[in-house]
């Protein structure tokens, strides 16, 4: 399994190198004044492609020195990692319509309660501090621009 992952990633590296080479060729390689914007990326992409190829050969020919380490997490671990990833995507989607406070409250509440498995009171207090508390401390006191909701009635109540 690990060997295949290494080989797959090396092939991915070669594909990335080729796409950058194509992209660099669309930029100017050399101008009247000297090297153009495509000069450095093209050289680097060629080197990256060669290195990926070397890695592909190494991972195919040689035995892995680190042994056959487990690459994919087990089901429970995958669920925990997945929950964090989905929560972050949720923050990205909800931040502008719901505003910082409501989005972060939900984000922290879900992570602490369901992933951290903490008590309800503890969860609510920390989530409130991490959302409303942070909004006022960093937004109002330290002057960071944190978004309010784009939904009129939520914005009207200060969220």
């Amino acid at each position: 399994m690990t060997k295949r992952v290494h080989q797959g990633t090396a092939i991915g590296g070669i594909a990335i190198a080729i796409s950058i080479i194509v992209g660099s060729l669309e930029l100017q390689f050399y101008t009247r004044l000297g090297p153009g914007p495509g000069f450095f990326p093209l050289i680097l992409a060629v080197i990256f492609g060669i290195l990926s190829l070397v890695w592909l050969i190494q991972s195919t020919v040689y035995k892995s020195e680190s042994g056959e380490k487990k690459f994919l997490p087990d089901k429970a671990a995958l669920a925990r990692i997945g929950a964090i990833v989905v929560s972050l995507i949720g923050v990205r989607i909800l931040m502008n319509p719901l505003g910082y406070q409501l989005t972060m409250f939900m984000f922290l509440f879900i992570l602490i309660k369901f992933l951290g498995k903490r008590k309800l009171v503890e969860t609510v207090i920390v989530s409130l501090f991490g959302s409303v508390g942070v909004y006022y401390l960093f937004g109002k006191v330290l002057g960071l621009l944190l978004p309010t909701s784009s939904i009129a009635f939520l914005a009207a109540i200060g969220l």
Partner: peptide
């Protein structure tokens, strides 16, 4: 850590 990781992520 169940509390801490969420605060760090926040």
């Amino acid at each position: 850590y169940g509390l801490l990781f969420a605060v760090i992520l926040g």
